[in-house]
Simulated scan of single mutants.
Amino acid sequence: MTRIIAGVAGGRRLQTPTGDRTRPTSDRVREALFSAIEAWAGSLHDLRFLDLYAGSGAIGLEAWSRGAAGATLVEADRRTADLIRANARSIGCDAAEVVARAVASVLAEPARASYDVVFTDPPYPLTDEALAADLALLVANGWLADGALVVVERSRRGPEPTWPAGLEPLAGKRRQKKYGETTLWLAEAAVLSAADDH
């Protein structure tokens, strides 16, 4: 079991998948993640949130609880995706869209909407090359709003993600946060000027 930390559903319990199908983000790392997002955005109110490799859905549902206008959660394992739907119902979240497909196949399609914040927590065995391909598809297929924040959770022992053109790591100490065996890497999407748009 895990809990929503803050917001309208703060304290509510969420079910977590059994076995080794997922690697839940610890409460400490989740709190640090949302502190970093709120430091960047001011607040999550009215922002659209994309949670990739969503597991129990704790991150995307936490974003909704803290005011996100909507959350899309992508999880390839169908039983786990059903669990996310059950968790959303249990906390009264009707703004969550759960997509039960592989992340790479979802991102390979043109986005139906762009997102202000993207969190991706791929399995640690996912290769750096596959992660780089995911990030490139986020940029290429219109998943990112102008100036969107992208946060990647990886093993502390791994290298920094390969950021594609159109994603710039945040400056200085905001670029990465380390907690135990986990590192969060943060980057921002380019803002297109009116001239760039033509």
Rank of each mutant, 00 (worst) to 15 (best):
V98L: 11
A194N: 05
G180C: 10
G142S: 09
I91P: 06
L33M: 11
A69G: 12
A187E: 12
H45I: 03
R23Y: 01
S114N: 05
V29P: 04
G42W: 01
D46I: 00
R28L: 14
D82W: 04
D20I: 02
L144N: 09
C93T: 07
E75H: 10
L149R: 13
S114T: 04
C93L: 08
R66V: 01
D116N: 03
C93R: 12
R66A: 02
T2I: 14
A39E: 03
A108Q: 13
M1N: 07
E129F: 00
R157G: 04
R156M: 00
V150D: 10
S193E: 13
V118K: 07
L61N: 07
R23N: 03
G19T: 01
L167A: 08
D77F: 10
V117I: 14
W185I: 01
R78N: 03
Y53T: 01
V151S: 09
E129D: 12
F49K: 15
S43Q: 13
R112T: 05
K178R: 15
D197G: 05
R157M: 06
P164F: 12
V99C: 12
R23T: 02
A63K: 13
E97K: 15
G166Y: 10
R30C: 02
L47G: 12
P122M: 09
E31H: 08
V8I: 11
K177A: 11
W64Q: 06
G67E: 10
F34A: 07
R12Q: 08
L44D: 06
L135Y: 05
P110N: 06
A171T: 11
P159E: 13
M1D: 04
R48E: 09
A133T: 06
R112M: 03
A108G: 14
R21K: 13
A132L: 05
S193G: 10
G57F: 08
S56K: 04
G19R: 07
P161N: 06
